[in-house]
Each structure stands twice: as C-alpha cells, then as structure tokens.
C-alpha cells in the first residue's frame, strides 16, 4: 500500500487491493480532488473507468466509514513514470447516480464515461457530451443494470426436413 499524495483531500479511506498498489474510497465530494492529487503525483494515464451495479450483491468489503451505495464508479489510474497502479472507487448513489466527470483531468475518460452513462445511467457532471455511445439513441433503459433483463429470447427448435 502506497501513501496518498500530499495534496489529497483529508479523510479518504484506503485499503489494499489485488494486483494494485492501493484502492481509495473517496466520497463523491472528494472524488475529483483525489483524482487530481493522484494525477499531480505522476499518474499520467487513466486506464479504465467503469460502473458497477451492486444491486443484489451479498456484501462487499469496504473500509470503515464508507457508505455503500448501489452504484459505484471504478477508476484505474496508471503511472508510467513510477510503474504503479491505483484504483479509485467512488460510491455514486442509489436512485440517480451522479459523480463529477474526469474529462478536465483526463480527456481520455470521455468515451468511458459515456459508456458508463449508456450502460448504467450514471450521470457525469461537467461531461461535454453525455449521450449514448453503444446503444441506439432511442433505446430505453440501461442494459448493464442488474434489474435489466439479459433479454434472452427463448430458443425454438423447429422441425426441418432432414436428408433422411
């Protein structure tokens, strides 16, 4: 576990994580400042940003003081200069999940945030163009939510004349 950067906002919970140097759990208010602090600490690449819908999960391990919400946004940062990885997990809310966009810090998160919006309905404040990216524009619902059905169509095996 590596220490938080000096410019990080106070009171951010941290924990060990698999295949990663540290996982941080900021509140949604401290989220942007924390990511900025990491960026200034030398994390040049925001490698991944995705949403998770924890509806129906039996219980995830969170550090003390972190209030679990249904939606979570997971950001993986990578430092090319010091070869480190950091994960930021922010609780986004239950009903209307909403966090701040990272577009100003990492322009590369633009498409990833649009994807999280498209598939989970997580809103990103300050995002330049929050439209659907993978689904058609007139699609209803957010497919990767846990209360959205897989959309399986029952398979019908029809009788077809065979060679015999």
């Amino acid at each position: 576990m590596i220490p938080l950067p000096p410019t990080a906002p106070p009171g951010v919970a941290c924990a060990d994580a698999l295949a990663c140097d540290v996982a941080c759990f900021p509140t949604s208010g401290a989220y942007l400042d924390l990511v900025r602090a990491w960026r200034d600490d030398g994390f040049e690449i925001c490698v991944d940003l995705c949403g998770v819908d924890y509806l129906g999960h039996p219980g995830r391990v969170l550090p003390e003081g972190v209030v679990a919400t249904r939606f979570e946004v997971v950001v993986n940062l990578l430092s090319v200069s010091s070869r480190r990885r950091v994960r930021v997990r922010v609780q986004a809310g239950d009903r209307e999940p909403r966090v701040h966009s990272l577009f100003d810090l990492y322009p590369g998160t633009e498409a990833m945030e649009r994807e999280a919006f498209d598939l989970f309905g997580i809103l990103f404040d300050g995002h330049p163009d929050l439209t659907r990216i993978l689904m058609p524009e007139d699609w209803e619902g957010h497919p990767l939510r846990k209360d959205y059905a897989v959309g399986r169509v029952p398979v019908q095996f029809k009788e077809a004349p065979g060679p015999r």
């Binding site: 991944d48 039996p58 391990v61 997971v74 993986n76």
Partner: peptide, 8 residues
C-alpha cells in the same frame, strides 16, 4: 471468493 480485481 468475494472481491474485485483489475489485471492487465
């Protein structure tokens, strides 16, 4: 086991 991981 319960948990989460990001590998690359």
């Amino acid at each position: 086991p319960v948990g989460e991981a990001y590998t690359a």
